[in-house]
Design a binder for these strands. Structure first.
Lengths: 223, 223
DNA sequence: AATTAACTGTGTACATTTAACACAAAGGGG
DNA sequence: CCCCTTTGTGTTAAATGTACACAGTTAATT
């Protein structure tokens, strides 16, 4: 390796698609760009990685400082290094998916002058800056594979969820419909969840039983 | 983003675990370190990423220049950014898996004074420098998932392979044994391979039929 | 109080897939 | 010609997935 100054110096940004369940809808958190270029377009939150921190550390910091969110479940997804990502600079993007339950999501910081955020349904994404639409798409694809190969959705449903709620999340992410009875059978016979003994309140019909995930998050074929 | 010089400048290296089939054995290509630190230990091949190339370009170049190999099937695996990876420098590693068929693998460049390479059985890895053992392990784990979710092993068996050969590759990578008849049935009923009409020669028992993969590489649940 | 609407919980029969298993076929070597 | 080795094929039982109908619980309506 020679020392041609700069040649081997790269700028890295971390980008995250944070998902949550809001009113039964799977949503992703986006940030509105306040300045040119792409003013008014939406972007994935993230930060520039310093050379004295890990990418994960940077990700956690960015999420906490800019969004006010803590305890986001993170998983590395993909690196984007095409030269034309940003017309001005050469920046390599490292994308993550993040999962946060609806209660923790309430602590999201209020919008300020310089930061405006919003949750969008994953089927209804606004116009996005740079190649962020592509990155988000890849991240959703990643999440899709993840939820059929692990109980990772535990992070969206930390405790006391109903099976119809869980099923709706699966249906939205996988973009399919499932049979209620078979869905229930699957999760119970796989031993993934347990009945808490309680039922929920305020629904429209018969109250649903409340469940919680038994095991920690780990890989396991579900579907 | 401020312009504190250097703060946001990162050094990236690409590292690849190139797999092939050699005499029925799944092997990975390693490079022997000729200088301190870790002299004599083995490392994954790779290169430092310049800021005028994509990581993939760098990977392809490194493989061609240092190893003399072309047409390696590549797939991104994981990023390692811990601060203690290398005691001297802060280098972020981006790992890939590479697959190359046994014929193309023959074109590997001869060893020179500064580069010594060798193929190692994946169950019999030598002592490795830095965190490369960990990275290789993660890459093998990645390959493992990959072969049950896609026909990616097509890159190791470009044409005219026998089913027992293919099965042995699966068994080594997954570290299991499988039933011959069920294995055959699986690949045939899934429509993944087709009979070429020929049989191989020089074996010990009954000559095996030769097959070839029908489809291009794509994701699909096999096991 | 009875009825209706909306939603949840449970069981059962059928189809499909996986898993286990035994024997015949083809070549090489004595 | 027999023996050894390895490959190719079919069949059966078990497990899993799929489709489907009805009963339970609550709130709203009459």
């Amino acid at each position: 390796m020679d020392f041609n100054p700069g040649k081997y110096y790269n700028i890295l940004e971390s980008l995250v698609s944070i998902f949550t369940i809001d009113q039964g809808q799977v949503k992703v958190l986006l940030l509105r760009k306040k300045s040119e270029p792409y003013r008014g377009y939406w972007i994935l939150p993230g930060g520039i990685v310093s050379n004295d921190e890990t990418i994960e550390m940077n990700m956690i910091d960015s999420i906490e400082v800019k969004l006010g969110l803590k305890d986001v479940y993170l998983e590395q997804c993909h690196i984007f290094s095409n030269l034309d990502r940003d017309p001005d600079d050469r920046i390599i993007a490292i994308s993550y998916i993040g999962l946060i339950d609806n209660v923790s999501a309430l602590f999201k910081r209020e919008d300020r002058d310089d930061i405006q955020t919003a949750w969008f349904k994953i089927g209804d994404i606004p116009k996005m800056a740079y190649d962020h639409a592509r990155i988000l798409k890849k991240n959703i694809e990643f999440l899709r594979k993840k939820i059929v190969n692990s109980n990772v959705l535990k992070s969206l449903f930390p405790s006391d969820f109903t099976l119809p709620e869980l099923q709706k999340a699966y249906e939205q992410i996988l973009n399919v419909t499932m049979d209620r009875r078979n869905f229930r059978k699957k999760f119970i016979t796989l031993g993934l969840i347990e009945d808490t003994g309680d039922t929920n309140v305020g629904g429209n019909g018969r109250p649903a039983k409340l469940y919680s995930f038994k095991e920690e998050i780990k890989e396991r074929n579900l579907f």
